[in-house]
Amino acid sequence: MSALVFLLSLGTVCRVTRFITKDALAARFRSRVADRFGDDSQQAYLVSCGWCVSVWVAAAVTALAYWAGDETWYQAGAMVLTLSYLTGLAGNWLD
């Protein structure tokens, strides 16, 4: 795996993890999990814990990067997610 694919994959894992655990657009998903299993359940904790979610997201992204990391479509998609994550970090830092 090249350094480019690794860094783009890293950014992708960060952005997808952030989306699942913190983003308002995924709040309904987190609420459904909590409603189904209970607010104090392991499942509800799993979908709100960045450390927990990142393991599963990283496993999926690593497999995809290994399989298609040199493909333009993978690199373009990963770049969009990485730039989105970095822009969010910069926005928080600069505001």
Rank of each mutant, 00 (worst) to 15 (best):
residue 79 M to L: 14
residue 36 R to E: 14
residue 42 Q to N: 11
residue 58 A to N: 00
residue 48 S to P: 01
residue 32 R to M: 15
residue 57 V to C: 06
residue 73 W to F: 10
residue 70 D to H: 10
residue 62 T to F: 09
residue 44 A to K: 07
residue 68 A to W: 04
residue 33 V to F: 06
residue 85 Y to I: 07
residue 87 T to L: 15
residue 51 W to I: 09
residue 26 A to D: 03
residue 63 A to E: 07
residue 71 E to I: 00
residue 27 A to G: 10
residue 66 Y to P: 00
residue 52 C to V: 04
residue 78 A to V: 08
residue 48 S to A: 13
residue 25 L to P: 00
residue 42 Q to P: 07
residue 51 W to S: 11
residue 26 A to T: 05
residue 28 R to V: 10
residue 24 A to D: 13
residue 40 D to T: 15
residue 83 L to M: 13
residue 76 A to S: 08
residue 41 S to D: 11
residue 57 V to G: 05
residue 58 A to F: 03
residue 48 S to N: 14
residue 30 R to K: 10
residue 28 R to S: 12
residue 64 L to K: 06
residue 27 A to R: 13
residue 47 V to E: 03
residue 50 G to C: 03
residue 47 V to L: 06
residue 27 A to H: 10
residue 42 Q to Y: 12
residue 48 S to L: 01
residue 44 A to D: 07
residue 68 A to D: 10
residue 75 Q to I: 04
residue 75 Q to A: 10
residue 46 L to M: 15
residue 36 R to I: 08
residue 65 A to Y: 01
residue 39 D to A: 15
residue 48 S to D: 10
residue 26 A to E: 06
residue 63 A to F: 11
residue 26 A to H: 04
residue 82 T to Q: 05
residue 38 G to L: 11
residue 53 V to R: 01
residue 60 A to L: 06
residue 57 V to Q: 04
residue 71 E to F: 00
residue 77 G to Y: 02
residue 61 V to D: 01
residue 27 A to P: 04
residue 36 R to L: 14
residue 36 R to D: 09
residue 25 L to W: 01
residue 61 V to S: 02
residue 27 A to F: 09
residue 82 T to W: 01
residue 69 G to P: 04
residue 61 V to P: 03
residue 33 V to M: 07
residue 25 L to Y: 03
residue 66 Y to L: 12
residue 63 A to C: 05
residue 40 D to H: 13
residue 28 R to E: 13
residue 44 A to T: 12
residue 70 D to Y: 08
residue 35 D to V: 01
residue 70 D to W: 11
residue 51 W to T: 12
residue 44 A to P: 08
residue 88 G to E: 15
residue 69 G to S: 05
residue 26 A to Y: 10
residue 87 T to A: 15
residue 75 Q to C: 09
residue 60 A to G: 01
residue 55 V to A: 07
residue 71 E to G: 01
residue 56 W to I: 02
residue 78 A to I: 08
residue 87 T to K: 14
residue 56 W to M: 06
residue 79 M to V: 05
residue 43 Q to I: 04
residue 44 A to G: 05
residue 30 R to L: 09
residue 70 D to K: 09
residue 27 A to W: 06
residue 36 R to G: 06
residue 47 V to W: 06
residue 28 R to D: 13
residue 79 M to Y: 11
residue 58 A to T: 04
residue 25 L to H: 08
residue 62 T to K: 02
residue 84 S to T: 15
residue 35 D to N: 15
residue 38 G to V: 12
residue 46 L to H: 14
residue 80 V to C: 09
residue 32 R to V: 10
residue 25 L to F: 02
residue 60 A to F: 02
residue 40 D to I: 05
residue 32 R to D: 15
residue 47 V to H: 05
residue 77 G to A: 07
residue 82 T to A: 14
residue 69 G to F: 03
residue 66 Y to M: 09
residue 44 A to I: 12
residue 55 V to K: 09
residue 78 A to K: 01
residue 30 R to A: 08
residue 49 C to I: 00
residue 31 S to T: 14
residue 40 D to E: 15
residue 36 R to H: 15
residue 35 D to G: 15
